[in-house]
């Protein structure tokens, strides 16, 4: 009986000491944003023709507050485009992936800013809490709050729902899908997902082969495959066929299949892995696909 009691006490002690969830986030802190002067790893490399003039780059901070916080968290954002035209332009809210900071994704944001022609569309990118210069610690609830704070800023600067497009890449597919399906400050009129998660449950079952509930290993509740069912606006999906992080069969195809409205476009890109889709597809073709979606749907 004594031994049983010791085992039970040890079980309770051990069963609360480790958490997997934090490992989803892979932020790196910075002391300043370097953008084009950043010499770390980036996912795509652009030539000088893609340089954005300093007059069209606006770095600022936002106050983000999730439902569990008593005070706001300061997060950093970069807008590419003319602030004075937000009340007329179409703006792409770019939700980056799970690693490092905005400098790593700066070439991707610049590439988006060349959709159609240079600075035809505005692009807003933020560093989620804990990333880059943003304060705080990453969390799933924080992702949604941070992107929503950015949408609130766009609305305050004159953007309307019909000119808001949200783009989610990899982990960024979670806030992009969530805030399109369950609108808060603004309701994006179009959704673009690149290499999205299906759900935390699929991540677990990909690893297990068995039908294992996600809650056996994680608190994450990301469920793009369910949330996308609520999306009524047009949807553009990119996924590399050689993606070895988020498999196209178990993640992307499920999300795409679950989109129930009629206006969807899919690009299943041969030989593209998780991080190199725009390069493998070709920058011009990638931009053309987005332009076609933005102008014809």
């Amino acid at each position: 009986m004594k031994h049983l009691l010791i085992v039970l006490l040890l079980s309770v002690f051990f069963s609360s000491c480790l958490d997997l969830d934090d490992n989803l986030y892979s932020p790196t802190k910075l002391t300043s944003y370097e953008r084009d002067n950043y010499d770390g790893e980036t996912e795509i490399v652009l030539d000088d023709t893609y340089i954005i003039p300093d007059s069209l780059i606006y770095e600022f901070t936002l106050n983000s507050k999730d439902s569990t916080e008593s005070s706001s968290t300061k997060i950093f954002a970069t807008y590419i485009g003319s602030l004075s035209r937000i009340d007329r332009d179409t703006v792409i809210m770019y939700c980056h992936g799970n690693s490092d900071h905005m400098d790593k994704y700066w070439p991707r944001a610049k590439l988006l800013a060349h959709t159609g022609s240079k600075n035809r569309f505005g692009v807003l990118m933020i560093d989620y809490r804990g990333y880059g210069l943003s304060e705080g610690k990453p969390s799933e609830i924080g992702l949604y709050a941070d992107v929503d704070a950015a949408l609130q800023w766009l609305e305050d600067n004159g953007l309307t729902d019909n000119r808001l497009v949200i783009y989610g890449y990899s982990m960024g597919s979670a806030p992009a899908t969530e805030l399109t399906a369950n609108a808060r400050s603004m309701k994006p009129s179009k959704l673009i997902l690149e290499a999205p998660f299906a759900s935390a449950e699929v991540m677990v079952q990909d690893a297990a082969e068995l039908s294992v509930p996600a809650s056996f290993v994680t608190n994450l509740e990301i469920d793009n495959a369910e949330e996308i069912k609520k999306v009524r606006g047009p949807f553009l999906w990119f996924h590399g066929k050689a993606d070895d992080f988020l498999y196209i069969e178990t993640h992307g195809e499920i999300v795409y299949k679950n989109y129930l409205a009629p206006d969807s476009v899919a690009y299943r890109v041969e030989n593209a892995n998780h991080t190199d889709l725009p390069s493998v597809m070709g920058f011009d073709e990638y931009n053309a696909a987005i332009l076609d979606f933005l102008t014809n749907y």
Binding site: N23, L24, S26, N98, S170, F245, H274
Partner: peptide, 8 residues
């Protein structure tokens, strides 16, 4: 291993 590899 960055990105999602550590998580996986």
């Amino acid at each position: 291993l960055n990105n999602m590899k550590i998580f996986y």
